[in-house]
Amino acid sequence: MSIENRTGLELLTIPEVGTILKISVPTVRRLQQQRKIPFFKVGGCVRFIRSDIDAYLQKRRVRSVDEYQ
């Protein structure tokens, strides 16, 4: 379950990121360990900021041929 703290940042767990990206938990862990997705640790638990996940998706978006014109 995601949490919203006082700063308005939506914090996500590894399984939540997997659900959003439609990938497995081990794949999320691999991306996190390879530091391909920004993360931070809180008390030993890995957390992600929703806007970082959205930015990760945006960076990997492949433009259509029509967008190049």
Score class of each variant (00 low, 15 high):
Arg47Val: 13
Ile53Gln: 04
Ile20Gln: 04
Thr13Leu: 08
Phe40Glu: 04
Lys59Trp: 09
Gln33Gly: 05
Gln33Phe: 03
Gln32Tyr: 04
Phe39Asn: 12
Glu67Ser: 09
Lys36Met: 09
Val65Asn: 05
Ser2Pro: 14
Ile37Glu: 02
Ile14Pro: 05
Leu57Ile: 15
Asp54Thr: 11
Leu21Lys: 10
Val62Gln: 15
Thr19Ile: 04
Gly8Asp: 06
Leu11Cys: 10
Thr13Glu: 08
Pro15Glu: 04
Leu21Cys: 10
Ile14Asp: 06
Arg60His: 14
Tyr68His: 06
Phe39Glu: 09
Ala55Cys: 12
Lys59Met: 12
Asp66Tyr: 08
Asp52Asn: 10
Pro15Gln: 02
Glu10His: 03
Tyr68Cys: 01
Val42Pro: 01
Phe40Tyr: 05
Val17Glu: 03
Cys45Phe: 07
Leu31Ala: 10
Val17Thr: 04
Val28Gly: 02
Ser24Trp: 02
Arg35Asp: 15
Tyr56His: 07
Arg29Gly: 05
Ile3Ser: 08
Thr13Pro: 04
Pro15Thr: 03
Gly18His: 08
Glu4Asp: 06
Gln33His: 07
Pro15Gly: 02
Ile20Ser: 02
Asp66Lys: 10
Ile3His: 08
Arg29Tyr: 07
Gln69Thr: 13
Gln69Lys: 15
Leu57Asn: 06
Asp66Trp: 07
Ser64Asp: 13
Arg30Tyr: 12
Arg61Thr: 10
Lys22Glu: 11
Ser64Trp: 11
Glu4Lys: 14
Ser24Gln: 07
Arg6Glu: 13
Val62Phe: 14
Gly8Lys: 11
Arg63Leu: 15
Asn5Cys: 00
Ala55Thr: 15
Ile14Ala: 10
